[in-house]
Design a protein around this nucleic acid. Structure first.
Lengths: 114, 114
DNA sequence: TGTCAATATGGACCATCGTCGATGTCGGTG
DNA sequence: CACCGACATCGACGATGGTCCATATTGACA
């Protein structure tokens, strides 16, 4: 979380003598929290690890329902959460739905955690 | 989220022909989710940004209660969450409580998101 | 067109989370 | 010792989240 990633707000000096240079504004904080919330679930981390480790960084749902200890609707729900957050993209191929990792979005998360 | 950060599980071949090399095991996924949940809140991101931008990467509570639009008990609660997750350390100096960023823990998060 | 397999959606339930006001605790200072 | 300021804790409340079962939808294929 470097200084350069933070928005500029008026400089102040507090009661205990510290000078506050910068505060992350609420709008940007909300945006980042949405991404982190999408990542902050063990099942979703497992799903991401499957996709990330698969050739081409993509996998179909049938692979994932077998590898994770939750029901198929729950897997589908988690995948939707990740797609909504922009961390995955969905593509239909015949009967199967394939999910691909958005590496730029994930890099953005790493970026604002620096 | 590179392959090297994932635990090894038996190799399989799924219905749609993909070979599953690795799945992140549930215990490790839970550990990582705890860290990400601690980060996944806009107010906590603001608090971290204040601490991270402050000289010495530390700040006292009085600085933060002024910069964030929630009550003092809520700030205290969020700081406790971050300390419990190991992302911050607390230190008492006279009347004031100072919080310091644990840069290694944050780097660990960036690490398993690679 | 009818059926089946793969995936998505809806509704319900319980647990967890974010927030607040009130109050407790601790340290400094008169 | 008494008081005051800084911070933590408690208890409560509404909101959100993860999970399931049941069911709808979609696409392939006979």
């Amino acid at each position: 979380m470097s200084v350069t990633t933070l928005s500029t707000t008026p400089q102040e000096v507090s009661a205990c003598g510290t000078s506050l240079v910068d505060v992350l504004d609420r709008v940007e904080a909300d945006r980042r929290a949405v991404l982190l919330k999408a990542l902050a679930d063990p099942v979703r981390l497992q799903l991401l690890s499957i996709i990330s480790a698969a050739p081409g960084r993509e996998a179909c749902v049938c692979d994932m329902t077998e590898a994770v200890q939750v029901s198929q609707p729950t897997v589908s729900h988690h995948l939707k959460t990740l797609v909504d957050a922009g961390l995955l993209t969905r593509e239909r191929r015949g009967s199967w739905a394939w999910f691909r990792l958005d590496v730029e979005q994930l890099a953005a998360v790493r970026g604002f955690l620096a």
